[in-house]
Computed example of a mutant assay.
Amino acid sequence: MDKKSTWESPELLSKQVGLTLRRIRNERGISLQQLTELTEVSKLTLGKIERGEANPSLTIIWKIANGLNIPISSLLVEKREVQISRKNEGNKIMSTDKSLALEPMFSTSGYGSLETHRAFLKPNSEYKADAHQDGVIEYVTVMEGRVNVRVQREVYELDKYDSIQFNADQEHGYINPGSVPAVLHFVMIYTNS
């Protein structure tokens, strides 16, 4: 059964994120106000997300995941027994400035301690990531193009198939200095889950 991918249908993504967020909030017995305090996202915005009325940006998704101390794929990926992740068929979430599209690849059982993503970074662009929750280790491999990875103030140049590992609970970012899109593969391990 083929379903329209959510990057083509933001309303499908919004509904999925909203239902999942409400389920997690209810499982934990926390109110919208408490979720606001945990995530630093307004109660109005969280309410709209839960009702599927808002299409949250990657920044908002990260704030929610960090506040709940869960991988972002817990909000974005539908859970199934056997999964195949095909390029451009999964959920995709855009950064606010549209420089980066993140495509979670697989969900994990429960809220999991590991997640994988594909990311597509536009040419001549930069995506700045806030610090993730404590204990997140990020592994990034460049699959296409060239990318400079900034961790705090240090910049590391990566070519195709080069990889980097760093603690992602600090400010970091990705710079595509080239004229073609870059494709990245992310593995994030949540050591405090």
Results as ranks from 00 to 15, higher is better:
R80A: 12
R80M: 04
E81A: 12
E81I: 08
V82Q: 15
V82W: 12
V82D: 14
V82C: 11
Q83T: 13
Q83M: 11
Q83H: 13
I84M: 13
I84A: 12
S85M: 04
S85N: 05
S85D: 04
S85C: 03
R86V: 02
R86G: 07
R86S: 11
R86F: 08
N88M: 15
N88V: 05
E89Q: 13
E89W: 07
E89K: 10
G90E: 01
N91Q: 13
N91L: 07
N91H: 11
N91D: 11
N91A: 15
N91I: 08
N91P: 13
K92N: 09
K92F: 10
K92Y: 11
I93C: 02
I93Y: 03
M94T: 06
S95W: 04
D97M: 06
D97Y: 05
K98A: 09
S99W: 01
L100C: 04
L100K: 02
L100N: 03
L100Y: 09
L102T: 00
L102S: 02
L102Y: 02
P104C: 03
P104M: 00
M105C: 11
F106H: 08
F106P: 07
F106L: 15
S107A: 15
S107D: 08
S107W: 02
S109V: 15
G110M: 09
G110V: 06
G110A: 10
Y111S: 11
Y111A: 06
G112K: 05
S113H: 10
L114W: 06
L114H: 06
E115H: 00
E115F: 01
E115N: 04
T116N: 14
T116A: 15
H117A: 13
H117D: 12
R118P: 03
R118N: 14
A119N: 02
A119L: 01
F120M: 03
F120E: 01
L121Q: 03
L121S: 02
L121D: 03
K122A: 12
P123K: 05
P123S: 07
P123Y: 06
P123E: 05
N124F: 07
N124S: 15
N124W: 04
S125H: 08
E126L: 11
E126S: 14
Y127G: 03
Y127H: 14
A129C: 08
A129W: 01
A129V: 02
